[in-house]
Simulated scan of single mutants.
Amino acid sequence: MEEDISIINSNTRNEKVRNFFINNKNKIISTVVILIIILIGAYSFDKYKTNKKREISNKFNSTTLAYSENTKNKTVQNLIEIINEQDPTYSPLSLYFIIDNELVSNQNDINSYFDILIEKTSLENEIKNLIIYKKALFNADQAKESDLLNILNPLINSKSVWKSHALYLMAEYFYSKDQKQKSKEFFNQIAILENANPNIKLQAQKRLNRDLSD
């Protein structure tokens, strides 16, 4: 008797499962198709990104290796194209190559390339902070006080490892302008900063003791 009941229950369950699949056949097929499309799409996108990265890498390497005075214009064109690709690795390297080799003389153009990296490129936070610092360093000789502070404020008001570098740049900027009180204020901030770069902290203390002591 119990065996018969067990058989009946098993048949009932099987019937329910069968009915479920029959009644929801279209939904199940649609779900499976959607999942397959998503998997194929994810694989294709990942493959596209990998191929795109390789393409940018090859373009950067071939461009920089072939660089000479005769290929300067083509080099600049290729490197600017790479910057506009907003690649987290090769876009910054392209800008650094342009600056190091003085391939673009217009400061506004260089700053616009910096802004592409800072504002539009997906970068790790401290890499972005480094680029902000490099932009300030690039502009330091000619920038007005307000402009330089505007560039560096994201670092000065943060806990970034580049904060002490930013403070030191502002301190030296004011010292070069013979604004010693302002310079001293920035050097003092470095002196009390917990995570300041040790070498920068040492240089700040030397400057305070040697040139800015009361």
Rank of each mutant, 00 (worst) to 15 (best):
S105M: 11
D87C: 13
I118G: 03
Q107G: 02
E126I: 00
F97A: 02
I82N: 11
D115R: 14
T121N: 08
I80C: 08
N111F: 09
K128F: 06
K134Y: 10
T89C: 06
L130V: 04
S112G: 02
Y96A: 10
E126G: 00
Y90G: 01
N129E: 12
N111E: 09
D100E: 15
E119K: 15
D87P: 09
I98Y: 09
V104D: 10
S91M: 12
E124R: 10
Y90H: 01
F97K: 05
D109K: 12
L103E: 03
I82T: 11
L95T: 02
S122M: 15
N111Y: 10
Y133P: 01
P92Q: 05
N108M: 12
L117S: 03
D109E: 15
L93G: 05
L117R: 06
L123P: 13
I83K: 01
L95Y: 15
N125A: 13
K134P: 02
N125F: 09
D100F: 09
L93A: 12
L103S: 04
I110Y: 11
D100R: 12
S105K: 13
L95M: 08
Y96Q: 12
T89K: 15
L93K: 15
E102A: 10
N108P: 05
I110N: 01
I98Q: 10
I110T: 04
E81T: 02
D100Y: 14
I116D: 11
